[in-house]
Amino acid sequence: MKDKVLKIMLFCSAVVLLLLMAGILYALISQSIPAFKHFGFFQFISSTEWNQIEGQEQYGALSFITGTILTSLLALIISIPFSVSLSFLIGELFVGKKIAFWINSFLNILAGIPPIILGIWGYYSLRPLLISLNIGHHGYGIFSAAILLSLMIIPYSTSISTTFFALVPMKLKESAYSLGATRFEVIRNISIPYIKKCLIAAHVFALGKVMGETIAVTMIIGNINYIPSKITDTGNTLASVILNQFETISDLKFSALFAIALLLFIITAVINLMARYMIRRVVL
């Protein structure tokens, strides 16, 4: 009898989760319909206009889609050599030694840095540095945002990669070494192919994470609503434009922001499910 009650409670909790998702989808869709109706769906997605003057309001999401893709992909590309090097260091070259432990603990602490602190550092420390290196005039922009995002990716992907490297069976590596292979060759020809799919999935997951990052990006991207022409230009991402422009009152703009949120939701959900699917397929 009591068991039945518990099982019903468990089921109801699962339903609550479903309702929450339904609620979010309902809010996103219903609030964005006016904007989509007004501008037309494809028009909205492909337009780079962002004009909030009354009477001439024109909104479009393309600048932000570009901004999101540029910052996230650039962040991923920047982070890969560093996170891979670190995971080689910790997981292969110095595995088990004290230095690996300290670096690992250090990175674990850094994985917990709140994004806003990254944004603060970016605004107060990174910007002056970039200006003095003559990368852009004002230190804001896509490139700066990408650096901050890569700093978010590195601790996470290092620890995941290290775990994956530890999964490569010792016997396999020993056979390669006993055939006279160098360290580099073992890693390149044995370890990496063994865990290649997992590494890719982990990075896709990291990509999804940074596409949705709001606050760190907002503080350094410059809040300009056009497609940037070079990496050091300012711009806006889907997430940061929602935060940056949320204070204003126009109904149509409100709806446009929700339309952007809906797009962001779809993109991040697809990427997350892709990463999950890739992990499912891999059985180590």
């Binding site: 929450l20 949705g212 929602i242 997350n272």
Partner: peptide
């Protein structure tokens, strides 16, 4: 799957909802 989508959802979307 729904839980996985929630896990990766950008916080700003939850905020505006």
């Amino acid at each position: 799957y729904i839980s996985a989508i929630f896990y990766g959802m950008p916080s700003i979307i939850i905020g505006i909802t």
